[in-house]
Design a binder for these strands. Structure first.
Lengths: 123, 123
DNA sequence: TATAGTGTAATAGTAAAATATAACACTAGG
DNA sequence: CCTAGTGTTATATTTTACTATTACACTATA
């Protein structure tokens, strides 16, 4: 995995798995790879993976069944809620940051528009 | 100061000062508070502040004058460039994250639009 | 029932960030 | 020249994330 050394690995693993759940790579009720396999996949330690999973279990997104494995919740409402939560967190962050740089609401919007346009051309 | 324990303090201090420079709270050529005073201001250690400053000095945004103090660069072009850089980094992050959540370009834009609208109503 | 695969937990060790503290080097002003 | 204020650097210590390793608890199945 490609880690950003500015933020904890367990946090990045958590986010990574959340993304897989939200995009449907991991479907509701589906079994996750074993913690040992996950550790290999993301090139991290079992304990680090476990820490990430613990938070997801607490959040109710993952259900842990001892001796069987970890499973994505079947409550699709929770997954949808999680998605909204992550999206909103992202939007809030950009908004706050750019606002703190004295960009107006419209400037923030148009700058994102421009960024997307330029990004499309660059490909 | 209000630190996010998910990212290094020196990095947050760096960002904090960058914001003050870009918004004009700290003007070109202006002297920064002493490192010891800054440490008190942000409730961190002198060495931690120094680490943040070191990166800013390397980046050419801050000029250090031993015995006199640290000063914001007078090259306004550099400051403008820094602003573009920070804004772009923010835009890139949201875009990548939301794109990874399977939001299309237009969905990303409209969701930001909606966020700003709702935020306005909440006040 | 034995075994392989699973989650869970504990221990010890390493590395990096941050702190506390002190010392050093330079500058300006009295 | 001396002193107060500045940046700079170094040392030792604490804290936290991460790793390596091992052991334990449970489940399914051959």
């Amino acid at each position: 995995m490609n880690f950003d050394d500015k933020v904890p690995i367990y946090y990045q693993i958590e986010n990574h798995i959340y993304h897989e759940i939200i995009t449907g790579t991991l479907k509701p009720g589906e079994k996750l790879p074993s913690v040992r396999q996950l550790a290999v996949d993301v090139t991290a330690n079992v304990n680090t993976v476990q820490r990430a999973l613990s938070e997801m279990i607490t959040a109710g997104i993952i259900e842990s069944k001892r001796g069987r494995g970890n499973f994505v919740t079947m409550e699709t409402a929770k997954i949808e809620q999680l998605k909204v939560q992550l999206v909103t967190a992202q939007l809030a962050q950009v908004y706050e940051q750019l606002h703190a740089l004295n960009l107006s609401d419209t400037e923030i919007l148009t700058s994102l528009q421009q960024y997307i346009q330029q990004r499309g051309q660059a490909k």
